[in-house]
């Protein structure tokens, strides 16, 4: 079978979403040094806040996106204050288990409030225009542009601003940063705001391209982790590269393997990535 370019396009769209999401996860990991299982549910929360504003209150999508992103940034800080802050000195393993509890709570709260089945944003469904035999939608193009803008913004933030440089330093060595006089608690606050906002945006993108479901984030978590780990956990540009690699591989895989094993691509990438290159694509992981 010849490779239909449509699959590659689909992969780029999925890859953009995974990249953005992986970026938020890896930022949080870089500073806080634990795997946050609830991250997927942060994504879903952002998507649902936007859904409530857009489809339930009838406000324009732009307003809804702002509300979802802002709401989730605040939400991430809230969860930190209520839960994670009390576990600051715990081991990464304890924090991981705590985050499972948080994930259970958030996911089922969403189900209790919005019901268990899927929803769509108030965006018309219509036949997509096609260019060179590839069908694309306005939402997809917006997703790709938004993700590129975000990636550029985060790059500038990390390289050019004081806070970003402090973040990078802290992600390399927290104790050292503290000795040099950086207020790590303030850094933690900023990283939750940034990580939460990015999670919310990732969730909204996912909901726009697909469907808004209570477990939408949780089921995307494995590809996101695969991207993060493939890119070297804690390394933002690795996460982005990993995200596109996983997205494209996953969508193109249906040409060679049965589509029911599409998910196995991310699973296998995660396992192989961890076993062969625990330092990631660019080899500058935090541990």
């Amino acid at each position: 079978m010849v490779l239909d370019p449509q699959f590659v396009w689909n992969g780029i769209v999925v890859g953009s979403i995974i990249s953005v999401s992986a970026l938020g996860l890896t930022l949080i990991f870089g500073i806080l040094n634990f795997i946050n299982i609830a991250y997927g549910d942060y994504m879903a929360t952002g998507a649902y806040i936007a859904f409530a504003v857009n489809a339930q209150m009838g406000l324009p999508l732009v307003v809804a996106i702002a509300a979802g992103v802002g709401g989730m940034a605040a939400g991430a800080v809230l969860v930190d204050k209520v839960v994670f802050e009390h576990f600051r000195t715990s081991s990464p393993v304890t924090l991981l288990i705590v985050s499972i509890g948080v994930a259970f709570f958030i996911r089922n709260l969403i189900r209790a409030v919005w019901g268990p089945s899927g929803n769509f944003y108030d965006v018309p469904i219509e036949a997509n225009p096609s260019l060179f035999g590839v069908r694309y939608s306005v939402e997809q193009v917006s997703i790709i542009i938004a993700s590129l803008l975000l990636l550029a913004a985060v790059y500038v933030l990390l390289r050019r601003t004081r806070i970003g440089i402090a973040m990078r330093a802290a992600s390399d060595d927290r104790t050292l940063t503290r000795i040099r006089g950086v207020d790590t608690e303030r850094l933690v606050l900023y990283v939750w705001i940034a990580g939460g906002a990015i999670a919310g945006l990732g969730g909204i993108m996912l909901g726009l391209d697909a469907q808004i479901r209570p477990n939408m984030g949780f089921t995307t978590l494995i590809p996101i982790f695969a991207a993060t780990i493939l890119g070297g956990i804690g390394d933002p540009k690795g996460a982005v590269a990993g995200g596109f690699a996983i997205g494209i591989l996953q969508e193109v895989s249906v040409v060679v393997i049965p589509s029911e094993y599409k998910f196995a691509v991310a699973l296998a990438a995660l396992i192989i990535g961890l076993l062969l290159r625990p330092d990631g694509l660019f080899g500058e992981a935090t541990r």
Binding site: M1, D4, Q6, F7, N10, V14, I17, L206, D209, A210, Q211, R213, N215, M216, T219, T220, E251, V254, P258, S259, E260, K262, F263
Partner: peptide, 20 residues
Amino acid sequence: DVPLENNADSYRSEVQEIID
């Protein structure tokens, strides 16, 4: 014969496979 995996984020590739 194309199974649709539950919890997938899109079935575009599956739709394409059917069209093809």
